[in-house]
Simulated assay, not measured.
Amino acid sequence: MNDRARGHSSATLSEASGLDIVLSPRLRPVWSGARLCGPAFTVQGAGGDNLALHHAVPHAPRGAVLVADFEGAAFGHWGEVLAVAAQQRGIAGLLIDGGVRDTAELEALGFPVFSRNNSILGTRKDFPGVFGKPVVVGGVVVRPGDLVVADVDGVVALPSADIDQILDRADARVAKENEFMEQLRMGRTTLDLYDFETTGR
C-alpha cells in the first residue's frame, strides 16, 4: 500500500479521492525535498509543551508517521534529538500542527518533517499527551491508520477505509494523464483533450 502511494503526488491523490482530505497549505516541509508517506500515529499534545512527543517516539510502530496536534503553537516542539531517536525506532517522519527547530540538522539527517512554523522557543515538559485518538491537524480530522502523504505541493490524509479505492483511481488518473501527455506532444491542445468550451465570451 505504501509503495503504491509513494508513486503518487499529493495533488493526484487529492483529485482522485473526491474527499475533503487536503490539510492546510500552511503545513510545509521544513527542508527541500522532504516527503512523507505512511500510516498515521496520532498525538494530541499541548502548545509549548513537547513531553507528548518524547512519549510518542517509543510507542509509535515502525513505519508510522507521527501526526501531532500542537495547536499551531510557535515553539520548538521537535528538533535534532527527537529526530535521531525517531529514526532509530524506524518512524517514517513527523507532521505537526505547531513549530519545530533544528531544520538544518533535520535535513542532514534526512528525517522528513512538515510543520506549521519554525521556532527556537523552548518548551515545557508537563503534558504526557494522548495517543491513538482522532486529532485535528491542518483543519482536517486525522484518525489512527489514515495514510498520510506529503510533498512539496501539500499534505493529504487518506481515510483508512478508502485507501485502496483512492489508489486505484489515482493509478487510473495517472495512466490517462500519460496518454494525454503523448497527445499534447503530438500537437493536440488541452481544449481538445478535455473537451472544454472553445468559444470566448
Rank of each mutant, 00 (worst) to 15 (best):
A64K: 02
F196R: 13
V81K: 13
N118G: 11
D171P: 08
T12P: 03
V65C: 03
G18E: 12
R201E: 15
L109N: 06
Q165I: 13
A108W: 10
S119I: 07
A64L: 06
G93S: 00
I120C: 09
L23I: 00
R116I: 01
L147V: 04
L27W: 06
R28V: 11
A161E: 15
L193T: 06
V149M: 01
D192K: 12
L51G: 05
G99M: 10
T199S: 11
F111S: 11
V140H: 12
A86S: 12
D20G: 12
A108M: 14
E107M: 12
E71K: 05
G132A: 02
G98V: 11
V30Q: 06
T123A: 10
D192N: 14
A104V: 14
G99A: 04
E179M: 12
Q165P: 01
L184E: 04
R143N: 12
G76S: 10
L19Q: 13
W78K: 02
G48Q: 01
A175Q: 13
P25S: 07
V57A: 01
V156W: 08
G99F: 08
K176E: 14
D20E: 09
V152C: 03
M186L: 15
E182S: 15
W31V: 06
V149G: 00
K125H: 13
M1T: 14
R124E: 13
L95K: 08
G129S: 08
N50I: 05
P25L: 08
V137K: 00
G90T: 10
L82D: 02
S10H: 07
L167M: 02
T12I: 11
T199N: 12
V113R: 08
P39N: 02
F111H: 09
L109D: 07
F196W: 15
L51R: 15
S24Q: 01
I21A: 05
G63E: 10
N2M: 09
A170M: 10
Q87P: 04
V155S: 05
L19C: 03
D192S: 15
L94T: 12
S17D: 03
A74H: 09
D151P: 08
S10G: 13
A157I: 02
G33D: 09
H55P: 00
D102I: 10
G145W: 04
G138A: 03
L158K: 04
V149S: 09
G33S: 13
L66P: 09
E197R: 12
